[in-house]
Each structure stands twice: as C-alpha cells, then as structure tokens.
Amino acid sequence: MWRWRGNPLCRRTDRIQGWIALGLLVLVPCLAAVTATTARDTVRDHYRAVAEHQARSRYFTPAVLVHDAPRHPEPGSPEARHTRYPVTVRYTDPLGHERTARTEVEPGLRGGSTTGLWVDADGSPARPPMPAAEIRSRALGWALLAFAAVTVAGIAVYDGCCRILLRRNSAEWDEAWARTGPRWSRFP
C-alpha cells in the first residue's frame, strides 16, 4: 500500500504499477481457478468418452499359458504381489481364430493355467479400458497445468508492464536530468 501514500518522490508510473499489481493479484487467481475447472471438466469428459469407446471395442477373453511363468525370487513378498512377468499365451479372438500373444501374468503360474487377456475388435492384444482413477488423475494433471499456465501468464504480464514503466521512468529521469544537469555541472 506504500505506493498510494502521499510521497513527493512517487511518480504517476509508480501508482500505475501499484494498480496493475492489485488488479492482477485479484484477476489472476480468479482466471486461474476458472481455467483449471474448465480444463478439468473438458479433459474428464474427453477421457470418459475414450474409456467408454474402449469398453465397447475391447473384449476380455480367457487365455491359456503356453509355458510356465518365471517364479519371483522372493515368493510371498509384497513386491511379488505386484510383479508381472511376460509370457506367451494362446487365446481365441472375437472372430474365432486361435492366436498367440505375449501378456504379463503373476509370477509362478504353470503352463496350461488360464488367465485373462484384453483384445481389440481385430483380436490383437490391447490395454484394458481406462479406469476411473486414471481419468481423474489425468483431469487433475491438466487442471494443475492450466492453473500454472494462467499464473505464469499473469506474472509475465506484470513483468512486461514493469519493464515498460521502468523504461518510461528512465526516459523521464533522463529528461529531468537534461534540464537540471547543466546547472549542477558548473564549477564556481
């Protein structure tokens, strides 16, 4: 608030800079929140549509392991529960053709065991449809990026305005010195 107090050294550009800072301080968070919300909703709707399309066009089919899956070095450990190993499996595609592919399965499964495999309409292995948690995280990520982009843009606008005002201040100081300097430069 020091820019608005009465001060004989305060120039008009200092007051303008203060008003710009205040305006951006109010405007940028509001715009950033609106932009982040809009980005989140748009991305969420897009990925929901993608997930629905994937759910309609992909099929979960049983697959039989061709050979044994490797055993985990530490069976029963927490890491073993989350580890998957790629193995060859045999399955029947939606068109009725027998096919083979590689997929990741739990460690230690025996050859001939049945597991599940997601395939697309052509019968090629595919990723499972996008889960709701992934949709949420992607939407949140884009919302955070939008918020950050608006904030950085606000900072850039303030910096640009300050540079313009500083250039104007320097020009005014040069003019004032050009008028005053000769009087100070004379020697007695």
Score class of each variant (00 low, 15 high):
residue 2 W to R: 11
residue 5 R to F: 10
residue 8 P to E: 05
residue 10 C to V: 10
residue 11 R to S: 08
residue 15 R to F: 00
residue 15 R to T: 00
residue 15 R to D: 00
residue 16 I to F: 00
residue 21 A to H: 06
residue 21 A to N: 15
residue 25 L to Q: 10
residue 26 V to D: 10
residue 29 P to N: 12
residue 29 P to A: 11
residue 30 C to S: 11
residue 34 V to G: 09
residue 37 T to N: 14
residue 38 T to I: 09
residue 44 R to W: 08
residue 46 H to Y: 15
residue 48 R to W: 10
residue 50 V to W: 03
residue 51 A to P: 02
residue 53 H to M: 15
residue 58 R to V: 02
residue 61 T to H: 00
residue 61 T to G: 01
residue 63 A to I: 02
residue 64 V to C: 03
residue 66 V to T: 11
residue 66 V to S: 13
residue 67 H to Q: 08
residue 70 P to Q: 15
residue 70 P to E: 13
residue 71 R to Y: 12
residue 78 P to F: 04
residue 82 H to N: 10
residue 83 T to Y: 02
residue 85 Y to Q: 11
residue 85 Y to A: 06
residue 86 P to T: 03
residue 86 P to C: 07
residue 87 V to H: 06
residue 87 V to N: 05
residue 89 V to P: 01
residue 89 V to C: 09
residue 92 T to A: 06
residue 97 H to E: 13
residue 97 H to F: 14
residue 97 H to T: 15
residue 98 E to Q: 14
residue 98 E to M: 13
residue 99 R to I: 01
residue 100 T to H: 12
residue 105 V to M: 12
residue 105 V to N: 01
residue 106 E to Y: 12
residue 107 P to V: 03
residue 107 P to H: 00
residue 109 L to R: 02
residue 111 G to V: 02
residue 111 G to R: 05
residue 113 S to W: 07
residue 113 S to Q: 07
residue 116 G to R: 11
residue 116 G to Q: 09
residue 117 L to S: 04
residue 118 W to T: 05
residue 118 W to P: 04
residue 119 V to G: 01
residue 121 A to T: 09
residue 122 D to V: 01
residue 123 G to F: 00
residue 124 S to L: 08
residue 126 A to G: 02
residue 128 P to H: 01
residue 130 M to E: 06
residue 132 A to V: 14
residue 134 E to P: 12
residue 137 S to V: 05
residue 138 R to Q: 05
residue 144 L to I: 12
residue 144 L to E: 07
residue 151 T to W: 12
residue 152 V to M: 07
residue 155 I to Q: 13
residue 163 R to E: 11
residue 167 R to K: 12
residue 169 N to D: 13
residue 169 N to V: 05
residue 169 N to G: 07
residue 171 A to D: 14
residue 171 A to H: 10
residue 176 A to N: 09
residue 177 W to M: 08
residue 178 A to V: 14
residue 179 R to D: 13
residue 179 R to V: 15
residue 180 T to R: 15
residue 181 G to M: 04
residue 182 P to M: 03
residue 183 R to G: 13
residue 187 F to L: 07
